[in-house]
Amino acid sequence: MLGAMAFTVSLWVFGEAIGIASVVSAMIGLSTLLLLGVVNWDDCLSDKSAWDSLTWFAVLIGMAGQLTNLGVVAWMSDCVAKLLQSLSLTWPASFIILQACYLLIHYLFASQTGHAGALYPPFLAMQIAAGVPGVLAALCLAFNNNLSGALAHYSGGPAALYYGAGYVDLRDMFRVGFVMALVQAIIWGGVGSFWWKFLGLY
């Protein structure tokens, strides 16, 4: 089993260099475990949480991709930029609003990578245009991208697994995720702002 795991992880890490996609690596790993008798097909079928996670991710990642392809993400970014320009806000106010928008827009994404890929550049550009120091804006968007992973049951890989285990119902997942996002934002924004000032980021 350890050999199969090491082989699968090696394929996952180095697969791109040798032309093997990560999905193929996962299938090779599963096939190896099945052939060696470590697991059987009934074990795979009975793992309902895994199938639940797979279903959620398949649908929601597809939806997030379509939102980007259809221009919804670009349209939303453009609307936010125009709104901020019309309000003539100071850079700290623009910074707070844009960071909050970046966090909450994650509800539309089933992947933190997809979220960052679609929204990081326009939100960084909007913040810099509003006068936010570049390093501060770049770092906070990166921090924010990680903090958004607990917003919902589809926000990131671990969230789907926690929800799929069946110990937390959907309403509680959304409620607790939102509360924790607020708590983390207050901690990062409150304590972090003093630390960032000490470091000279603004």
Score class of each variant (00 low, 15 high):
residue 110 A to F: 15
residue 173 M to E: 04
residue 104 L to V: 14
residue 113 T to Q: 15
residue 142 A to T: 11
residue 174 F to K: 06
residue 147 L to P: 04
residue 155 S to Y: 03
residue 125 A to D: 15
residue 113 T to A: 14
residue 146 N to S: 14
residue 103 L to T: 08
residue 160 A to M: 14
residue 106 H to N: 08
residue 137 A to V: 05
residue 143 F to R: 09
residue 145 N to M: 11
residue 99 Q to E: 15
residue 153 H to D: 07
residue 141 L to Y: 02
residue 117 G to A: 13
residue 155 S to C: 07
residue 103 L to S: 00
residue 153 H to G: 01
residue 167 Y to T: 05
residue 164 G to C: 09
residue 110 A to R: 03
residue 149 G to Q: 14
residue 112 Q to N: 12
residue 142 A to K: 02
residue 170 L to C: 05
residue 143 F to G: 04
residue 163 Y to K: 06
residue 130 A to K: 10
residue 111 S to L: 15
residue 136 L to D: 09
residue 110 A to W: 06
residue 101 C to L: 02
residue 168 V to W: 14
residue 178 F to W: 00
residue 105 I to V: 15
residue 138 A to G: 04
residue 104 L to D: 14
residue 163 Y to G: 10
residue 155 S to I: 01
residue 100 A to P: 07
residue 130 A to P: 01
residue 112 Q to A: 11
residue 124 L to P: 01
residue 128 I to A: 13
residue 173 M to N: 10
residue 103 L to R: 04
residue 179 V to Y: 05
residue 114 G to W: 04
residue 140 C to Y: 12
residue 160 A to E: 09
residue 166 G to T: 00
residue 123 F to K: 04
residue 133 P to Q: 00
residue 123 F to L: 04
residue 112 Q to R: 03
residue 117 G to T: 04
residue 111 S to P: 05
residue 111 S to E: 13
residue 114 G to S: 06
residue 112 Q to I: 06
residue 177 G to N: 13
residue 105 I to H: 00
residue 130 A to D: 12
residue 171 R to P: 02
residue 140 C to K: 11
residue 158 P to L: 03
residue 109 F to P: 10
residue 158 P to I: 03
residue 110 A to S: 13
